[in-house]
Every structure is written in structure tokens, then in C-alpha cells.
């Protein structure tokens, strides 16, 4: 059974130019888990790396999510993200070490877990997570990319960045080294929020303002919003693979609201006027 507090639409497309789709997406609607990866490496190794990443992330997070109910710590999803990412990194790195066809392969990733009225997020590389709340878009991740470093250091201005050829240079990826440090964070998620995970094939070709307009206007039909995002990237050139995962929060999802023991406890709490 899918979680009913969350609506998810996901789409990946090879684009107009590339021969292969090296992006991978994976969704677990039962536990509210989404993951996306954009692979790199020769001879289709990028496809292998991104698929290994999304598989390992969703498998690891799903197993962990089954235990969230028994784990009252609010940061349990953050720990699960860190562990799943480490496992995915090791698996990809090992495969690259053992098989010459996969040497040097790697992948960016973005993943999110919805639990207890919060979204736990992680990313490595230039895959992004945005939030649209009250029709305004916010970028919740910070790219591991040379371009971002350049802008941050003031080597070039943000306006100049659109002239740069450094868009595709990421400074961190899964599978490249034996260890990786991911950016992991969480924040409250409220009904009406729409979260977007995307590969750079979207945000390189579609302005944030247009992403905002599409999601805010079409949030009542999430799969139409997803197809519009992908279509817009392709209409603007579609040079790269493009992938999007949209997740809309329909209603509050406190951890105590799940499971029959918690529900009975909450009922008693209400009955006797006590706080939970």
C-alpha cells in the first residue's frame, strides 16, 4: 500500500542528443522514499553506476524505514541516508576496481525520505533538490561543482556563470573514491509542499522561474507537471539526459499517526486531554 500523505510522479528521458540514458530514478511509494542519480563513465558505465546507486539507496532506505517506527530518534532517517550512501559508494567503487569496463565510473545522486512531518535529504554532486512552497521555489541543495566554487570564491559572478563551460565539472561523486561525504540535512515538510529532485539536464536548460511556474500551476496534476518539466528541457535543447521526481505532501504525516498502537495511544491522549 502506498503512503497516502504523499503523491509522487517520476520521469526520466534520454533527451534529444545523447544515445543512452545514464540517469536512473527509483521510488518507494510504500515508505515515501525517492532517489535519483546521474552517472558518468565510458562505455555505458554511467548507466551501471547510476542504477547501482538508486538500487542501493532505495534498498537500504526501505529496510531502514521499516525500523523507523521503533526508533524514536528524529535523526533516524538522516543516519539511514548516510549509511545507504556509504553502501552505494562502496559498491560502485568496488565494481569499478574489479571490472575494467567500469573503471572510473561514478554518479551524482539526490535522495529524500519523508518521515514524521519532515523531509530528510541527501545529495552528492550536481543533482538537485528544490522545494516549491506557496508558489515560490527554493533550491535546498548546494552543487558540488567547479562552477559553484568559482562563484562562491568570487572568481566569476553569478551572472557570468551562464557563460561558463564548466557546468559539467562536478567536484564530488559516488564511486570515485573509497569514501564519500554526502550533504545530509532535514527540515519540516508541510501539506502543499512540492519537492523536486532533478538531474542537471533539467536545471541547465530550464530557468528556475519556469520550473517554479510549471510546478506551482500544475501541482494539481503532478504527472503532467513532471512531463512538462522534461518537455521544456527538451524544447530548450535537450542536450543531456533529463530526470525529475516530484513529491507533493498531501497532509500532515506525524510518525505517531502510523501503526495501530500509536493510533490508539493518540486516541487515549485526546480522550484524556493530555499532550502526546
Amino acid at each position: 500500500m502506498a503512503v497516502d500523505f504523499l503523491e509522487i510522479a517520476a520521469l526520466t528521458d534520454v533527451g534529444n542528443v545523447r544515445q543512452y540514458n545514464e540517469d536512473s530514478i527509483a521510488v518507494d511509494t510504500v515508505h515515501g522514499i525517492v532517489a535519483l542519480a546521474d552517472g558518468m563513465g565510458g562505455h555505458r558505465a554511467g548507466e551501471v553506476a547510476s542504477r547501482m546507486a538508486t538500487d542501493a539507496l532505495v534498498t537500504g532506505l526501505t529496510a531502514a524505514a521499516a525500523r523507523f517506527g521503533a526508533d524514536p530518534r528524529q535523526h533516524a532517517p538522516l543516519l539511514a541516508l548516510g549509511q545507504s550512501i556509504n553502501r552505494a559508494n562502496r559498491a560502485i567503487h568496488e565494481a569499478g576496481r574489479l571490472d575494467v569496463r567500469y573503471r572510473g565510473m561514478g554518479t551524482t545522486m539526490a535522495a529524500a525520505v519523508f518521515h514524521d512531518n519532515r523531509i530528510a535529504m541527501a545529495h552528492v554532486g550536481d543533482s538537485r533538490i528544490y522545494r516549491v512552497r506557496d508558489e515560490r521555489i527554493s533550491l535546498l541543495t548546494r552543487d558540488d561543482s567547479l562552477l559553484r566554487d568559482q562563484v562562491e570564491l568570487g572568481v566569476i559572478s553569478a551572472a557570468e556563470a551562464s557563460q561558463s563551460h564548466n557546468r559539467s565539472l562536478v567536484t564530488r561523486a559516488l564511486g570515485i573514491e573509497a569514501r564519500v561525504t554526502a550533504h545530509i540535512t532535514d527540515e519540516p515538510a508541510v501539506p502543499g509542499d512540492v519537492y523536486l529532485l532533478c538531474s542537471d539536464g533539467l536545471n541547465d536548460l530550464v530557468e528556475d522561474a519556469d520550473i517554479e511556474l510549471i510546478i506551482a500551476s500544475l501541482s494539481g496534476n503532478l504527472s503532467l507537471a513532471a512531463s512538462h518539466l522534461v518537455q521544456t528541457a527538451k524544447d530548450n535543447g535537450g542536450y543531456d539526459n533529463v530526470s525529475v521526481i516530484l513529491a507533493k505532501v498531501r497532509e500532515p504525516f506525524p510518525a505517531s499517526g502510523r501503526g495501530w498502537i500509536a493510533r490508539i495511544r493518540a486516541w487515549f491522549a485526546r480522550l484524556f486531554g493530555a499532550g502526546r
Binding site: 546521474d38 558518468m40 551524482t108 550536481d126 567547479l146 566554487d149 562562491e152 559539467s168
Partner: peptide, 25 residues
């Protein structure tokens, strides 16, 4: 390389610029 109309630059890994990324300038 850039003279073709379409930028087919593939994603590559590169070492980042040296900076304390947690501190915004």
C-alpha cells in the same frame, strides 16, 4: 571543441577549488 552548436560536454569529476565551503564569503 565548443565550435559545434551542441554542447556535448560529458559530466566529469574534478577536484574542487580550495575553499572552506561551509563559510560563505
Amino acid at each position: 571543441k565548443a565550435s559545434s552548436e551542441i554542447d556535448l560536454e560529458r559530466t566529469m569529476i574534478i577536484s574542487g577549488l580550495k575553499l572552506n565551503v561551509d563559510v560563505a564569503p
